[in-house]
Amino acid sequence: MANKDVEIVKSSGKRVKFSFDKLRGSLKRAGADEKTINHILDIVRDELYQGISTKEIYNRAYALLKGKETFLASRYSLKKAIYNLGPTGFPFEKFIGAILKYSGYKVEIGKILNGLCVSHEVDVLAEKHSEFILVECKFHSEEGRNCNVKVPLYINSRYIDVKQKWNGINSNKPLTEGWVVTNTRFTVDAVKYGNCAGLHLLSWDYPKGNALKDRIDRVGLYPVTVSTLLSSEEKQFLLDRNIVLCRQLIEESFMLDHLGVSENRKQKIIHEINKLCNL
């Protein structure tokens, strides 16, 4: 049986043809060189079988990258690391807020705003150059779930209500955009409605070339959950103290002392993060 005929099972349960090009692309995006990529592809090719899960393929590639360089494995695990921000979704809101902050915005999380009809708690309110954007985050902690049209429909109605009130009293500092951000993917109808309504849509893979994964990779704004050297408990400790980005951990490395991390291990963690974020 040729490799091109192998069907793999996605987390949603859907069966699709396995693509070496997609695997190569994800390994390349992680920063692996051609020799490492070809080595991993050869191993995966030998281990493919009909009905293998995407999770098995991911775990195999992740383990091989980790054996080469831990920071490569960290970059490769980005999508999973964002899922690991859950399950409440609040750390994801802080993560998006942190990304906007590093993009030059002043940010407030979980702010109550009055609408024309009712008040609303918004996930992120961001301001730059006296213009404000309202950002609503739709977080899924389970892989395979997409963001359907109901989400932008609901968020657009809230945005319009807030905007009508806001711009009536803040004409010199207007609310100019409503954003919908998700860690998964938008359905076709969600994209169609969002664009028609004038919302700014941002998902794992949308818009092409400037999606969430592209923005993170481009400026090295990785969540602390990507680290291969921190335990789950240590990551949660940091998230609880608003250390959401790896860059923040570099700036506040004393947090590792509070965790009781040895000096030797601390240096390894900092080295991994510096390599990961190109610092």
Rank of each mutant, 00 (worst) to 15 (best):
T88D: 13
T88W: 05
G89Q: 10
G89W: 10
G89N: 08
G89I: 07
G89P: 10
G89C: 07
G89H: 08
F90H: 11
F90R: 12
F90Y: 13
F90P: 05
F90G: 01
F90M: 10
P91Y: 12
P91A: 03
P91R: 09
P91C: 07
P91W: 01
P91M: 07
P91L: 07
F92Q: 06
F92V: 08
F92I: 09
F92W: 07
E93Y: 07
K94D: 06
K94E: 13
F95K: 09
F95P: 02
F95M: 10
F95A: 07
I96A: 03
I96Q: 04
G97N: 01
G97L: 03
A98C: 02
A98L: 08
A98P: 04
A98S: 13
I99Q: 06
I99F: 08
I99E: 00
I99S: 06
L100F: 12
L100A: 01
L100K: 03
L100S: 06
L100G: 07
K101P: 02
K101A: 14
K101G: 02
K101V: 02
Y102T: 08
Y102S: 11
Y102W: 00
Y102M: 10
Y102E: 13
Y102C: 00
S103N: 13
S103L: 13
S103Y: 14
S103M: 13
G104L: 00
G104M: 05
G104C: 00
G104W: 05
G104N: 00
Y105M: 04
Y105Q: 01
Y105A: 05
Y105K: 00
Y105V: 01
K106F: 12
K106C: 05
K106H: 12
K106D: 13
V107D: 08
V107A: 00
V107K: 02
E108H: 11
E108V: 02
E108A: 08
E108L: 11
I109A: 01
I109Q: 01
I109S: 05
I109E: 00
K111E: 13
K111D: 06
K111G: 04
K111L: 13
K111P: 01
I112Q: 12
I112N: 13
I112Y: 12
L113T: 01
L113W: 08
L113R: 04
L113P: 05
L113H: 09
N114L: 14
G115A: 10
G115L: 09
G115N: 08
G115W: 10
L116E: 15
L116Y: 15
C117N: 15
C117W: 15
V118C: 15
V118N: 15
V118D: 14
V118S: 14
V118G: 09
S119A: 15
